[in-house]
Amino acid sequence: MSERNIVTADSGRGGGGGVTAIYKSERGASKVRQRYAELLEAWPIPAERRRVPTREGETFVLVSGPEDAPPLLLLHGSGGNASNWRGDIASWATHFRTYSVDIIGEPGASAPSRPPLDSDRVALWLDDVMEGLGLSDISVVAMSLGGWVALDYAIRRPGRITRLALLCPGGVGAQMMGWLPKALFLRLFGRRGVRRTAAIVTGLDIQLAEEVLDDVVLTFAEFKPRTERLPIFSDDALRGLTMPMLVIVGSRDVMLDSAVTAERVRRCVPHATVHVLPEAGHAILGQTDTVSKFLLEEQPTR
């Protein structure tokens, strides 16, 4: 895939106008984009790059899988992009036409726009993405911030998401800040300390997930993440979710209260399948087969 196709858009509402709205500098943005280019060139299966015009600016979508297969939308987390799915995509694209969306305002190849989360503008943006891709109803796999986006859309657009798999989703359990003082202290130790901070935040082992952590360090050295707290969905809003639903959280998540997430989903969405991984943190990896099984299983009669 050609690198020339992944220049980040500089237009869009709500983000201040240019890449420096979400990056610390143009030079830093260039470094992150270059790494993204490398990851896209190494995409494990054939893919098509699309740019979808939306009211918030251009949205970049990486499309894989058979054209006649059922559609599957993938939404990454904060500080991520479509490359977050590179370990899963070969499996999922066997059965689905996958659409890996770069969420606006994140370090991918979409517009830097950041519509307020306490409004309907994120859902309206996703309406535009769906229309631009020619999709009417979809299955969705989403993580963290992407999980919040998926839940917000499912609540506001009943019936459009037919099956929903969420990895450490935002908006259910509260965000936690207890890790922050330790992270600030570790930054005093330079790159080694920053890498250790990344391991704490993600819950990943420094030796076993070296490449992933290196990418996290590179991104957050140059990227300015959203600072507002994710709105928490009410019990009544969650009770309105009727589609088959899978939720996977890590019991060692330091970013989101996974125990509350699991409890609220079980109570408000009793038909949902909930897995709590005892050794996992915020980054939920190695769940490709579990998610595949959920996506492919026949919908139970209720």
Score class of each variant (00 low, 15 high):
A280N: 03
A90V: 05
G132I: 07
R4H: 07
E38A: 12
S292T: 13
G12R: 06
R192H: 08
D127T: 02
D289Y: 08
L124S: 05
L238T: 02
F60M: 09
P70C: 05
G108D: 06
H282A: 12
V249H: 07
R267G: 02
P53W: 11
A280Y: 09
A221N: 10
H95W: 14
P225M: 09
P300R: 15
L145R: 10
E211V: 09
A109R: 01
A209G: 01
S100W: 04
I89V: 14
Y36W: 09
I104M: 11
A69V: 10
P181Q: 13
A272G: 09
Y153C: 02
R191N: 04
G105C: 07
S100N: 12
V217Q: 02
S100R: 04
A93M: 01
R4S: 12
V19N: 04
T261F: 02
T162V: 11
M1W: 02
V276K: 03
V276Q: 11
P225V: 10
E56A: 14
R50V: 11
M176P: 00
A174G: 01
A82M: 08
P244F: 14
G57T: 07
G134Y: 04
G105M: 08
Y23M: 03
G18P: 00
L218E: 07
L188N: 05
V260C: 07
L230W: 10
G12W: 12
L238E: 07
D10K: 10
D289K: 13
P158S: 14
T98Q: 06
Q287T: 15
L188T: 10
V247Y: 01
E56F: 14
S100A: 15
R302M: 04
Y99M: 09
T98H: 07
Q299D: 08
H95T: 12
A221C: 03
A183H: 11
P169S: 02
W43C: 06
R191K: 15
C168A: 15
L285S: 05
A21Y: 00
D236H: 06
P231R: 13
L256N: 03
G17F: 11
T242K: 15
D137C: 09
V274A: 10
S91H: 13
V194D: 04
M177V: 08
R239V: 02
R239F: 05
P115Y: 13
L295W: 09
A174R: 15
K31L: 15
S251W: 08
I45M: 06
V265A: 04
L256F: 12
T227P: 00
T20M: 08
A165D: 01
R187Y: 13
T261Y: 06
D152V: 00
L40I: 05
S110I: 05
V172A: 05
D137A: 14
T288V: 11
L241Y: 10
W148H: 12
W179D: 02
K31W: 04
E41T: 13
A183L: 14
L184R: 14
L204Y: 08
P270E: 05
R160N: 00
Y99A: 06
G147V: 06
D257V: 03
F233W: 13
T219E: 01
